[in-house]
């Protein structure tokens, strides 16, 4: 008998994905399928293609899809611009959130939230309505309202930047959230705040991909699936036990799963 999750249609399907940048092939046949409510972790050595995969899903213009398909709720997203993908429900939490001096965080968040709301055919929020919403969401990541008056990520500590990413995720209510090394550079307290924020936002309609090197994030957020990437493809998939084995044995242990051909 199939479980409840298995009967749902996949939110994100990546089929035999090849991608390159500057004539260098980085992804070499990635396959992954994410159902609503599932949390997937992708682990792997530096340079194995994890961040590239996240950027390609989000539509980074420096990368080219040379083969395969990415579908969001059954629709091919390759023709979509990055903003159309975001409006459709794809969210990328950056490993290194960008600082944009002079652009108010509040204004940026309002424009972004309204772009998503417009796509969802919800009423756009005026400044006052948005302030009410954002204050509510700030509590999820334990941020002070003064953050909103600053320029985007400018002068933020590493932890503040990552919390700002989770705040954006909370506001945008994505279908698929890809969190690229959201745990990097965080102390234990900040990691707990970020992890707790992600858990509060996660729901049965949203799929989450956690890209990480460390077990400590997965101690806080237990994934349904763990994938190991090497040489631009997923070489092994398992449950949360796989992450523990990686923690114990290191990535060398997974080399035997690499298809040498």
């Amino acid at each position: 008998m199939k479980s409840k999750k298995e009967t749902k249609k996949p939110l994100l399907e990546i089929h035999d994905l090849f991608a390159s940048t500057e004539n260098l092939t980085i992804l070499k046949g990635v396959n992954i399928s994410i159902n609503p409510g599932e949390i997937h972790a992708i682990m792997g050595r530096n340079g194995c293609g994890k961040s590239t995969l996240s950027k390609i899903i989000a539509g980074h213009p420096s990368y080219e899809i040379t083969g395969g398909k990415i579908k969001l709720s059954g629709t091919d997203i390759e023709p979509l611009e990055p903003e159309e993908r975001a409006q459709s429900g794809i969210f990328l939490g950056f490993q290194y959130p960008i600082e944009i001096p002079g652009v108010s965080n509040l204004e940026f968040l309002r424009v972004a939230t309204n772009a998503r709301r417009k796509f969802l055919k919800k009423e756009e929020l005026d400044t006052f309505e948005f302030e009410d919403l954002v204050k509510e969401k700030l509590e999820i990541v334990k941020m002070e309202p003064t953050f909103l008056n600053r320029s985007i990520n400018q002068g933020f500590s590493g932890g503040e930047k990552k919390r700002n990413e989770i705040l954006q995720m909370a506001l945008l209510e994505p279908k698929i959230a890809i969190l690229d090394e959201t745990d990097s550079g965080l102390d234990i307290d900040a990691l707990r705040i970020v992890a707790s924020g992600i858990k509060k936002i996660a729901n049965e309609n949203c799929g989450i991909i956690l890209i990480t090197h460390y077990q400590r994030l997965l101690d806080e957020i237990k994934p349904d699936f763990v994938h190991v990437m090497a040489n631009g493809k997923i070489i092994k998939t398992g449950n949360s036990e796989l992450a523990l084995e990686l923690e114990k044995n290191g990535y060398e242990w997974t080399d035997k799963f690499i298809d040498k051909t």
Binding site: G59, P82, E83, I98, I100, V103, V111, A112
Partner: peptide, 23 residues
Amino acid sequence: NELFYMRSRGLTLEQASKLQLRS
């Protein structure tokens, strides 16, 4: 990078460029 960051949050290229120019 700034443009992509803003576009990845749903801002159009025009909106993102405008915000950048504004700053």
